[in-house]
Structures are given as structure tokens and as C-alpha cells.
Design a protein around this nucleic acid. Structure first.
Length: 713
DNA sequence: CCGATGGGGCTTTTT
DNA sequence: GCCCCATCGG
């Protein structure tokens, strides 16, 4: 009998789900039921006995996606999905390294550094090496290290063509040593270490290659080159990789995603066929037509058009605003009208290219009394107070964790000044011991132990001793009080709201422990470590949750994978969307166009597009011109809501000398002295009109149009 | 030790 | 324009 979970699949979906064991590429358009295919395939494989749960490994892009996948599989199959390996690349690597920490050369309870921790660790290394932070910005160093690791390179393997690069390489090497000494691992290290483990250890490699008969990859277009290498290694000669992705939705190139992996995959794995899922179940016809038309301007595509069985729906509304404020006002009024029509606020999304754009929108919504929620900014486990609490927990787990010690040795304040900390660091360096050991020496000579370093040492020791045997939430609660963290924030006038987050941390720990429910094994021997790992790997969701009675504000990136009845895409101006910085990058505009494609395909029924003739940006007024993407949507699909474009002076032209000159952001120009460049900004009017040009040779320059002898290139 | 003050940066972001 | 950071002065 045919299982019910195969019902209602369309022919392409069914073909993908029931494919025999072979490598396959499923080109799944937006809203085409991609997750459904992936989860149904897993259920089908297990249900028909082709696969055991233990022979399945599925990689997702986010933890949230992994969780959802497990939930959906659980609903289809009466099995415990725990034997399955489902997670992000980082999560799976973590699992592998925990299970084989000895072979990987790691302590069993290694901690994971998030980006913040990593930066702090880098600053520490640089201080120890006496390297000037002005000359070598720590953020740059962080980028350098991560880029190298994400290419599979260790410090000694990185090219160093000049003195500067040599210094970067030195910091890299010292940083890795420091991490090893402290038993911590950064995100990139998780992947690299796991890859090295598998590539060097033949026995393990053979074991996992034969164990994971079925590899499934979600969001394949977002995998990096190194992740692809990792997959290939795990797949081995006989591996079957079921890859699902959409090259048109590849929007993470800036952090290493390489949609070219799709083409490479077809060749490397001799993929016999590509299945395209092109029926869209989300958007009305006109919206889909607009998306198809827009994305057809990209050259780097595998190529597919979406179609729908739905009717055309309503035209796309376009509003040309005078200013960002005017744009926000328009959006608020339209939101109110939608609400009148019965559209739930939670089904309305305001999307923008950059977070800074939310401010004007928030202000307008607030003034109008419309509830809204903004996504972005710090996530739960990244908040300062939560990080402080986690630092205490990390010290309980491992007092040698220098990063954690530095974070809280004087927080809440207990009379340990910068000088003292420096002395401890110096002593630790000289004797080659951890900060904790150095602090113990300093504090252990019968000194006054009511404050300062001795008090800190006693506190940490007491926390370890007293909380042993407690449940995780009990431990945290005790720690929050004994350390004085809760007291500190409760007493604070300005930061009292942080107490809530600390209480939330106790709840999070309780929920975590419950979910964990005695599942301790050789991979994760201890709940505290598991919780800390969870906190690092899954910093809390950035993405919206359904069902909230508030307008949803987020960047287009954050909206990926979501859908709404009504979507507003604002700030459709050259230089903003497409963003000016993308203009210098190879194929940058194509990625911006994919971003626009993602934005459009979020909408089910209503789509609003808008741009503003002027906008406050970086503290000054910038004049913009309508985005090229608006020209790429057939005008037959669009209903202009005002006539500003013709009735008012063209906004960009008004910003620069005379309406006839037509300089605009993104335009290529030549200057007699500076050579070739691209206009990246316009400011001022009339005689004061100036443009900012990024010249290929000399970099950015501001020029008064009145005097500069600019000509179009 | 904390609050005030000034300087620099400023696209997108998960792990 | 605003936010984050580092540094300084009380």
C-alpha cells in the first residue's frame, strides 16, 4: 500500500522523493516544496527499508532548519530520529569531534568560541605579541584567519608575500596555539579539524563513508568550497549525495557560499539527472511573473522559470516617494489599509536591504501606533549579560578558559583593576600557565579574601563545589546569585531590564535539559558542556516566528525561507538596492538581483515596491534614483500609485548639477587626473552639488561637480 | 570604578 | 545620524 505521505506530491516532487540510491540535484525554486521533498525522501527511505536512520546524514543551513526537519520526519515516521545525523555543517563536525576528540587532538570538553569570543581572543594574542592594533586591526586579523581556515589552510600554509602578511600569519599561528592551550575551538576550526580528522585517519574515514549511505544537503547553493570538499570526502567513491538547492536564491556569496558547487557537483558525482521543481505554491501569478522576469537578467544561472496554478492576482504597487520619510508614511498608511481589509499584521513584512533602513520605518510605525517587531541585532546568547553568565559557567566547566576568566574576573566589580589583570597575564605568560593558575598563585598567599583576586578565586571554586550534583537550571540560578550578577543588574538604574534575560537563561537551561533527557554518551558526556556548546552553535533565532500580531521588519537576507500575505520592499534605489559596494565585486549585481528575487518571492498576494528621491544616510542627505531592478520588472505587471516620477524633477538629477547632466550612482566615469571610477554617492544641490567617486587607482574622492572635469566612461 | 566624552565606522550574516 | 568602543577624568 502506498503510504499517505506520498499523497499530494506533484510528479516532479514524487520523482525526487522516490529516486533510487544515486547522487541527484534537485533544483527547487522558491515556494516549490523543497523542505517537504527533503523530509519526505528521508521518511520514504527509512519506511521502505532502503535506509536505516543511522545511515542517513542530512546537512542544513541553520539549526532552525535542522530542528524543523527532524520534527517533520518525526510526524511522518513512528521512529526515534536520534540515530540520524541531522544538523548544520558545524553541528555535525562538533558531533564528530566530540566522539573522536582524542584522534582529533582535542580535550573531551572543548569549548566553542563564537565570533565575539574569537575577536577577544585575537586581541589578547596581539597584545601578548606586542602588535599594534592600529596597524593590524583585530577585525582584519579575524577575517584573515577565518578566510584561511575556510580554505582549509593552516598558518604555515598561507602565502605571505610581504612583511604585513608575515605578521598576519604570525598572529594566526600564535592564536591557534593559544586556542590549543586553552582547549577552545572557533567555528572555522570545527570544520577544518573535522576535515583533517577524516582525511588523515583512514579507519575513521572508511567507517563513516560506509555508515552514511545517504547524504542529503539542503540549501546546496549556500555551501562553501570547503564544505563541498568536506562532503566529497565523506561521500567517498561510492557516496550518494542528494542535493537540494536553488542557484537563483544564492545570496550568501559574501561569506563564502559558492553556488558554482552545483555545476561542479553535476560533474564530480556524475549526476545522471537534474530534477527541477518549478511549480510554485506560494505566490500569485503576477508576482511570480515579476520574479521570473527580473531573474532572467542574470547570466550565471542553471535556468528555470516558476509557474503557478493560481490566478494572476493583484498588480504590484509602486510608490515613488520624495524622501525616506515620505516612503515610510506611505507604507504605514498602506499597512493600516491592509489591516482594515483583514490582513493580520503578522502577515505583513517590511523588507529592506540594510538594517539602518529600519529606523525611519520604526519611527513612522511607532507614531501611528502600529505594533511592529524588528528582527536583527544581537541574539539571545550574544547579549552581554548572558555572555557574562556563560563565562561563569565556562569557568565551572574549565577554569583554564582564559577568555571566560578575563570576561568576569572583575565583573561584577570586585576591585580587580586593569593593572592587576596585566600582572596576572604577565605571570601566566612568563611561567607558561593559565590565567586561572596565575590568579590562584596571586590570590593564595593568605591575603584578604573578601575582595579582589582572592575573592574571585574562592568564588569560582565555591561555584564548582557547591553546584556539583545540581540540575543545570539550579546551577545557573545559584551561580547568578553567588556571583552577584543578578544583584548587580537589579541594583542598576539603566540595566535592570537585563535581569529578565538572565531569568530567561534559567528557563532556556531547563528546557534544554528536559530535551536532553539523559542522552549523555561518549559524544556529549556532560550537560553543562552540551549547554555551552548549544549556546555557541545556536546563538538564538534571528528569524521571524509566525503568528505574532505585529508587522514584521527585517532585511531581505533574514526573510529568506519565509512567506507573507503582503510584502513591502523599500529603498529600491541605485546604490542601496543594488548596494553600491556590490558594484565593485565580480558578479556583485547578480547577487543583488538574486536578493531582489528572494524578496519578491516572499509575497503571497500583495507586493509593494517603493523608492525615495532623498534619504538620510551616514548622517547626510543622499539623493537616489530608482533601482535598475524596477526597470527589469515588466511595466504591465506594475501599477504606479503616484506620478512623482514624471510630475516632480527626477530625484537623482535634482541632486546633482542640472537635470540634464544625469549623473547617477553606479555610473562609470573618467576624470582627467584620477582616471576611471564609479560614482558611489551624490550630495548637495546646485552649485554645491558633489559626487563621491571611487577611482580604480586612487580610491574614493569627493568632487564638486561644478569644477571637476568628469566625463562618462 | 564608573560615567562622560570623543572618534571611527558604517551591507548583507550563520555557525 | 547613530552606535560601539576606547580612553580619560572625577
Amino acid at each position: 500500500m502506498r503510504p499517505s505521505y506520498l499523497d499530494n506530491l506533484n510528479p516532479e516532487q514524487l520523482a525526487a522523493v522516490t529516486l533510487p540510491r544515486q547522487s541527484a540535484l534537485i533544483l527547487a525554486g522558491a515556494g516549490s516544496g523543497k523542505t517537504r521533498v527533503l523530509t519526505t525522501r528521508i521518511a520514504y527511505l527509512v519506511h521502505t527499508g532502503q535506509a536505516t536512520p543511522g545511515s542517513i546524514l542530512a546537512v542544513t543551513f541553520t539549526n532552525k532548519a535542522a530542528k524543523e526537519m527532524l520534527t517533520r520526519i518525526g510526524a511522518m515516521l513512528p521512529i526515534n530520529p536520534r540515530g540520524m545525523w541531522v544538523g548544520t555543517f558545524h553541528g555535525l563536525c562538533n558531533r564528530l569531534l566530540r566522539a573522536h576528540h582524542r584522534e582529533a587532538g582535542l580535550p573531551q570538553l572543548f569549548q566553542i568560541l563564537d565570533a565575539q569570543d574569537q575577536l577577544a581572543a585575537i586581541k589578547r594574542v596581539m597584545k601578548a605579541l606586542g602588535i599594534d592594533e592600529e596597524k593590524f586591526p583585530p577585525k582584519q586579523v579575524q577575517y584573515f584567519i577565518n578566510t584561511a581556515k575556510e580554505q582549509g589552510l593552516r598558518a604555515h600554509e598561507v602565502d605571505a608575500p610581504d612583511g604585513e602578511a608575515v605578521t598576519y600569519r604570525e598572529i594566526f599561528a600564535a592564536y591557534d596555539q593559544q586556542c590549543a592551550r586553552e582547549g577552545v575551538v572557533d567555528f572555522a576550526e570545527l570544520l577544518l579539524r573535522a576535515w583533517e580528522l577524516l582525511s588523515r585517519n583512514e579507519v575513521l574515514r572508511a567507517h563513516y563513508q560506509s555508515r552514511f549511505k545517504y547524504l542529503l544537503v539542503d540549501e546546496f547553493q549556500d555551501t562553501s568550497e570547503f564544505q563541498y570538499r568536506w562532503l566529497k570526502l565523506l561521500a567517498g567513491r561510492d557516496g550518494a549525495v542528494f542535493a537540494v538547492g536553488d542557484d537563483d536564491q544564492s545570496i550568501y556569496g559574501f561569506r563564502g557560499a559558492h553556488s558554482g558547487n552545483m555545476q561542479r557537483f553535476l560533474a564530480d558525482f556524475a549526476v545522471p539527472q537534474v530534477i527541477k521543481l518549478t511549480q510554485n505554491y506560494r505566490s500569485a501569478g503576477i508576482i511570480l511573473d515579476a520574479a521570473n522576469a527580473l531573474i532572467s537578467h542574470n547570466r550565471l544561472r542553471l535556468g528555470k522559470d516558476l509557474w503557478t496554478a493560481q490566478g494572476p492576482g493583484e498588480p504590484i504597487r509602486l510608490y515613488a516617494a520624495d524622501s525616506d520619510q515620505d516612503e515610510a508614511q506611505f507604507i504605514v498608511e498602506e499597512v493600516r489599509a491592509l489591516r482594515e481589509e483583514g490582513v493580520p499584521l503578522g502577515q505583513i513584512a517590511l523588507l529592506y536591504r540594510a538594517n539602518a533602513q529600519s529606523r525611519v520605518l520604526e519611527h513612522a510605525l511607532f507614531s501611528a501606533g502600529v505594533p511592529y517587531r524588528v528582527y536583527g541585532g544581537l541574539r539571545f546568547f550574544e547579549r552581554a549579560e548572558v555572555k557574562h553568565a556563560l563565562a561563569y559557567l565556562r569557568l565551572i566547566a574549565n577554569p583554564e578558559d582564559d577568555n571566560a576568566l578575563l570576561r568576569v574576573i572583575n565583573f561584577p566589580a570586585r576591585g580587580v583593576g586593569a593593572r592587576t589583570v596585566e600582572q596576572i597575564q604577565e605571570a601566566a605568560r612568563e611561567q607558561g600557565i593559565s590565567l586561572w593558575q596565575a590568579a590562584c598563585h596571586k590570590g593564595g598567599k593568605g591575603k584578604d579574601s573578601s575582595k579582589g583576586v582572592p575573592a574571585f578565586v574562592l568564588l569560582v571554586e565555591a561555584l564548582r563545589r557547591e553546584t556539583e550534583g545540581m540540575t543545570l537550571p539550579e546551577r545557573i540560578e545559584h551561580m547568578l546569585h553567588a556571583s552577584g550578577l543578578i544583584g548587580h543588574y537589579k541594583a542598576s538604574k539603566t540595566e535592570a531590564d537585563r535581569v529578565e534575560n538572565l531569568e530567561e537563561l534559567i528557563h532556556a537551561a531547563a528546557a534544554f535539559e528536559e530535551e536532553f533527557d539523559g542522552e549523555l554518551n561518549e559524544e556529549i558526556p556532560d550537560v553543562l558542556t552540551a549547554f555551552l556548546t548549544h549556546a555557541a552553535l545556536e546563538a538564538g533565532e534571528h528569524q521571524a516566528e509566525a503568528g505574532q500580531e505585529a508587522v514584521q521588519l527585517m532585511t531581505v537576507h533574514a526573510a529568506k525561507g519565509l512567506e507573507f500575505d503582503a510584502v513591502f520592499i523599500s529603498g529600491l534605489e541605485e546604490g542601496l538596492f543594488p548596494h553600491e559596494n556590490s558594484l565593485y565585486e565580480p558578479d556583485g549585481v547578480e547577487e543583488e538581483r538574486r536578493l531582489m528575487y528572494v524578496a519578491i518571492t516572499r509575497a503571497r498576494e500583495r507586493l509593494y515596491l517603493s523608492y525615495a528621491g532623498s534619504r538620510m544616510l551616514h548622517g547626510q542627505v543622499r539623493y537616489g534614483v530608482a533601482s535598475r531592478f524596477l526597470d527589469e520588472i515588466p511595466s504591465t505587471l506594475v501599477q504606479p500609485l503616484n506620478v512623482a516620477v514624471t510630475a516632480l524633477p527626477a530625484p537623482a538629477a535634482a541632486g546633482v548639477r542640472g537635470a540634464t547632466e544625469g549623473w547617477h550612482i553606479g555610473q562609470s566615469v573618467v576624470h582627467p587626473k584620477f582616471g576611471h571610477g564609479v560614482i558611489v554617492g551624490c550630495a548637495g544641490r546646485g552649485a554645491n552639488a558633489e559626487v563621491e567617486v571611487n577611482f580604480r587607482q586612487v580610491g574614493p574622492k569627493r568632487l564638486l561637480l561644478q569644477y571637476a572635469k568628469l566625463s562618462p566612461a
